[in-house]
Amino acid sequence: MSATEVDPATTNSPEAAMASRARFAALVQRQGAFAIFVLVMVVASFSFDSFLSRGNLTGIAVQASFLAMLALGMTFVIMTGGIDLSVGSVFALGGVLAAWGSQHGTLVAFALPLGVCGLIGLVQGLVIARGGLPPFIVTLAGLLFARGLLLLLTDEGAKTYKVPAGSSFRKLAQSDLLGVPYPVLLVVLFFAIGALVLHRTSYGASVLAIGGQEDAAELMGLPVQRTKVLTYVASALLAGFGGIMIASYTSSGVTILGVGLELEAIAAVVLGGTLLTGGAGTILGSLIGVLLLQVIKNVINQVGSLDSDWQAVVSGSILLGVVTLQRWLTRAERT
């Protein structure tokens, strides 16, 4: 593939070339989604007058906020080299529990979903970390379990719990501060905390170390199992919180939500430059991945003649394109 004619005496130039290529690879991996995001934003703002309007941008941000919660947890999970397929179901379950709970008070609306979702995350984490079962299968079962529980609670999906009209719970997602909706503020807050946790706590370091090389992390004496369990708990909690937000936003517990959302979250994280093999990635990248997906949705909606289904096609293609590019470049880096 690469024409590397190496004269052992003068390895400098090809090495330098390789280094610059590696740097470019890292750049694409880290900033590729950002570049596409900016590009789409620029094109969209020239193409549609209404695109940059306050209302539209706020809409995009609010719509993206739910997925963002899932993507944040997923980022941590993927960084440890795992995957969490259960978040879509857990998200929906959280929403239904929150809507049901809000009938018994706002506190219950928060505590109940977080408790149940946290428990699901804990079980998944324990089975993965201690039982050594593959995350893919465990969280796949978690997906089925959470959705089954959800259907059980809602009379096979027939019953929709409403948030009482006067409930303060509605404020969570329906109010704003200085014009910025609460969900958006919450996402910013959570991502800031997430970045802080990743970069400023020993837990964060363990996450990166485990993803980089699990054996190495263990040899360095890091608490591998505990870190993994915590990560799956965090992912489930964040998904549950996303559910709480959507319950407040729609004032009801909608049961059909969240199907396939785990895959969108994974797509956003991978787009944001986190390698599925773990060990590399950024919190901010995932946020950009989420925004990119949402902006694409928005743009396709704006093009009246285009079917909204283009959104899925474009998202899928971008995901594959970015992954292929990542792969080619990292391969160049290795050889």
């Binding site: 020993s202 370091a205 990166l208 170390a209 980089g212 090389q213 054996d215 190495a216 992390a217 040899l219 360095m220 004496g221 890091l222 060990g279 590399a280």
Partner: peptide, 22 residues
């Protein structure tokens, strides 16, 4: 110290030195 460096490439030099005892 192993043949393959068992540190975390994404963290800074200082972070690696103090990993676990920051």
């Amino acid at each position: 110290i192993y043949q393959e460096v068992n540190l975390v490439p994404l963290l800074s030099v200082a972070r690696n030195i103090f990993l676990g005892r920051e």
